[in-house]
Nucleic acid binder design. Structure first.
Lengths: 324, 324
DNA sequence: AATCATTTTTGTCTTGGACAATAATCACAG
DNA sequence: CTGTGATTATTGTCCAAGACAAAAATGATT
């Protein structure tokens, strides 16, 4: 009861409102079509209106609530307990459960007042739409702090802060895009200045993300840190299919494959992809994973090293060196 | 008839073979679950075996063929004609479908022997999996030729050559990714070295691509050329929704919005998106579009300037200057 | 308090049908 | 031969209701 194009993305969400089709909601929330339908059947939410063809049309409000639900699910809650709740109740749960979450992040923040105020200033530069100030602030901080602390203590927390501000509606999409773009420029410039490393004392590392993972900032942060450790890095950018990652690892004869995951994907998919890649990779090739994906740290993954925090990267390289 | 994790994937594809579940095939091939099932019903392919629960299990061979089919679909073929074919037939079609070239690209190539041989050398560096040689070759060429000719006469044709080699199966996905990544680094370095432009004599330009368009190389090429012309550039990276492009244009008070399109989308989608954006943008804001998307140049688009070739960019800036 | 067995919860896959937008084909006029 | 308009064919996505196995929660026993 539907058709091919059903063009709308989010453009018409404001003016006229036929509502968003289920495919768009899947993209926007990360919840599968099947899941959305079975939730409607079981919990009575979300209950979209139907268009002339009988297809579901979700309101912007429903999508917003689904976004909140998604975050609570990532925080460990169960669908049955929260899917029926209204916006206010969800928001309450979210703020209440906020401090429980990122314990591995908080240790770097709030211990340093100067960092906090710098971060705040940069956030304001984004909101002011001032790319020049943003770029200058980042660049200056990198020079002052040194690259490794810059990445670990400022860029990483700042990026999650921007992501959260966007999720809470305090930032628009284009403001988050501007931040990503400016930071990408700064990080790439730093990496380029490190490039002429003559004799690689560390492992040769292949960097990329798997299909459908298009968040590339984490990759750049890791690349910067690894180059500081004397690693030889080969980056493939984002969205490389599993089979091609394995193929590239063989072609470039790397010692390590490093993958970055954001939290937009279903845990089952992440695990399946990793298991798949692990078996396609030679046993002698190490597999390192990291990023804000909660699925990585719940259970230990056999044959895979999970890097929950960027500060754990340096020890991992040291450990690799020691094993040789 | 299935379950959550569905642990196996392709890991066992070599030794024992339960085959890949449908979700993995969707991720690896980009073909939706519904599409895979309806193809099986209509064309009898792919015909996966079933596991103990009755779920489909696709063989690695089938996935490989699906990948080829995907490429042919992107090249404009119809599923009904190619879904039943075997590996050899698909490969034949793929290599055969080369000469259907856009004529507007060929004019820059083949007029200069030195350029041709340089391009050939760089293509070989990609095939040799030698990122260092590739990067050095590009960097040296940029220094020798100067940035504008480098972008217009070498990078642009080289990029289309790589894309075609990939479409014909002469390059693997990861090889194309490596090219993109290395070139991105070179271009960004060039742009960064231009950044401290004091007084902008040219228009302020917002650069981005619309949703679902993730090809960012064209954006970087345009940004480099525009900065040479004294423009002030604000880039949002790729995949900005239409509404946010308009919002950003207002927030940053730009004179021009420049969009890049690759040829992966349907013409109707492109036209709809552009029309929508044109209405949301102030009339005083110019809208420039370019890229390898054939839909842009078939009919004239009202209120939009189409840049078929990068050499047309400089005149457009001059024209804008003159209008003030 | 920890280990094991049981029940509940939950996401994904199944089948067969349907539809609307796109593309291909055909008929007809200039 | 070249457009142009109408017709038919193709094709991706959505729907419904049912089913099942893994994960989480609960209860029982050491």
């Amino acid at each position: 009861m539907n058709s091919l194009s059903s063009s709308p993305t989010l453009g018409e969400s404001l003016s006229n409102s036929p509502g968003l089709p289920i495919a768009t909601v899947e993209r926007e929330t990360g919840l599968g079509k099947d899941t959305l339908r079975v939730w409607e059947r079981r919990y009575g939410f979300p209950k979209p209106v139907r268009d002339s063809a009988g297809d579901r049309r979700y309101s912007a409000t429903q999508v917003q609530q689904l976004r909140l639900i998604r975050r609570l699910l990532d925080a460990g809650m169960r669908p049955g307990k929260i899917v029926g709740l209204n916006h206010a109740q969800l928001q309450a749960l979210l703020t209440q459960h906020a401090p429980a979450l990122p314990e591995y992040l908080s240790k770097t923040i709030s211990t340093n007042r100067a960092l906090d105020s710098l971060q705040e200033a940069l956030l304001q530069a984004i909101g002011r739409h001032d790319p020049r100030a943003l770029r200058h602030g980042l660049s200056a901080a990198q020079m002052r702090m040194g690259l490794a602390p810059f990445v670990t203590d400022l860029v990483a927390p700042l990026t999650t802060a921007v992501g959260e501000a966007w999720a809470q509606g305090r930032f628009e999409v284009f403001e988050e895009h501007l931040y990503t773009e400016v930071l990408t420029g700064v990080l790439r410039q730093a990496i380029a200045s490190l490039t002429p490393q003559p004799a690689s004392q560390g492992p040769k590392v292949l960097l990329t993300t798997l299909s459908q993972e298009q968040h590339g900032l984490g990759l750049l942060m890791v690349e910067a840190l690894l180059m500081l450790e004397g690693c030889a890095c080969v980056s493939l950018g984002t969205q490389t299919p599993v089979a091609d990652v394995a193929q590239a690892a063989r072609a470039h004869q790397v010692d390590v494959v490093a993958l970055s995951f954001s939290n937009v994907h279903k845990a089952a998919m992440v695990h399946a992809g990793l298991r798949e890649l692990r078996t396609q990779l030679p046993a002698s090739t190490a597999l390192w994973v990291g990023g804000a994906c909660s699925a990585l740290y719940q259970r230990p993954l056999t044959g895979i090293s999970a890097v929950q925090h960027l500060s754990n990267l340096q020890p991992l390289v040291a450990q690799w060196r020691h094993a040789r």
